[in-house]
Simulated assay, not measured.
Amino acid sequence: MSMLKLGGCCIVFTLVLLFALPVLSAEPAKKRYVLAVVPNQPAITLHKNWTPLVQYLSKQLGVDIELKLYDKIDVFLEDTQKGAADFTYSAPNMFYLAYQKQKYVPLVRSSHQLQGQVFVRKDSPYTKVSELKGKTIASVGPKSICSVITRHALLTGQGAINYNSSFSGSTINVAKSVLLGKVDAGVTLDTSVINDAPEMLSEFRVILRTEKIAPHPLAAHPRVPKKLQNAVTKAVLALDQSEEGRRILKDVKLVDPVKADFKRDYGFFAKVDLEGPRQQSK
């Protein structure tokens, strides 16, 4: 009888353990997603600027969003074009390249549009684009958005011209190259010199402005559930309702955010040469 009771006790104890297991086990791990950000600033700056938004989205959506930063633009392009990232923030032309390969979905963008410009020294003899035929024009690099959209305007617009390309690596270096007479003209976004080299503004004269285009989108890979895509869009738009939220958006250049639309915002790039000049002039 005692053995039976002992066996019964063992059975009861085992059942108690089985019922207790769900309570004692750890909570299920949150779903993890990777957000890849274009390396248009030093990694330390991007980490500082993007961390608040990543933490906010992770908390609001109940998922774990990991920020992925890059040292080289080519590695970023390779990752996004093979679909390694769940979410991306990239220049419009780079987004379009990823869309062609992976069909990334643009979710939200700033409402402030981008415009390229060609400028010369204030005392330059050149007063119109046609006079730059065969001359050397400096830009940040062959894949920068200002280079892509301005090159498109120079090669296909009214009075289209051929010219030599020189890549300077940064807006400030482009401005310096023009100022020192190393090149005949420079290419930037209309806001870049204002932001990066305001003291040089009075030294230049703009001779061409491109059409305006939609800026960098925050985009999602199609494998990200539609419900989560919509939640990200809603969460980003909600940030614009508070002063602290607007500060977070300003740091990641999503000022005055709006919902993005692929055809309306980025269909333009279907007619643009995204590869850039094949050779760099010396």
Rank of each mutant, 00 (worst) to 15 (best):
S2W: 15
L4R: 15
K5Q: 05
G7M: 13
C9E: 01
C9F: 11
V12R: 04
V12W: 02
T14S: 15
V16I: 15
L17I: 15
L17T: 07
L18F: 11
A20F: 07
A20P: 02
P22T: 03
L24F: 12
L24T: 12
P28T: 15
K31R: 14
K31C: 06
Y33S: 02
Y33P: 02
L35Q: 02
L35A: 08
V37A: 07
V37R: 08
P39G: 06
N40A: 11
Q41L: 14
Q41W: 13
Q41T: 05
T45Y: 12
L46Y: 04
H47S: 13
K48E: 13
T51V: 02
P52H: 04
L53N: 06
S58C: 01
K59S: 14
K59Q: 12
G62Q: 08
D64H: 12
D64E: 15
K68P: 03
K68H: 10
L69K: 08
K72A: 08
K72T: 10
F76W: 06
E78D: 13
D79G: 08
K82N: 10
K82L: 09
F87K: 05
Y96W: 12
L97R: 14
A98D: 07
Y99N: 11
K101T: 01
K103P: 00
Y104T: 05
S110C: 07
Q113G: 08
Q117S: 04
V118W: 09
Y126N: 08
E131A: 14
L132M: 06
G134Y: 05
S139E: 10
V140N: 11
G141D: 14
G141F: 09
K143W: 08
I145W: 03
I145K: 02
I145P: 01
R151Y: 13
T156Y: 07
S165M: 04
F167S: 01
S168C: 09
G169E: 09
A175P: 01
A175F: 07
S177Q: 10
A185Q: 07
T188W: 09
D190Y: 11
S192Y: 12
V193M: 11
V193F: 06
I194Q: 14
D196R: 11
D196N: 13
P198N: 05
M200V: 06
S202Y: 06
F204Q: 01
L208F: 03
T210E: 09
E211Q: 13
K212G: 06
A214H: 01
P215L: 00
P215G: 06
P217N: 08
P222T: 05
R223Q: 11
V224E: 02
P225M: 07
K227M: 04
L228I: 14
A231Q: 14
T233M: 03
E244S: 14
R246E: 10
I248N: 04
D251A: 15
L254H: 11
D256G: 01
V258H: 06
V258K: 07
K259E: 12
D265I: 09
D265R: 08
F268N: 01
F269L: 03
D273A: 11
G276V: 11
P277C: 10
R278W: 03
Q279E: 15
K282I: 00
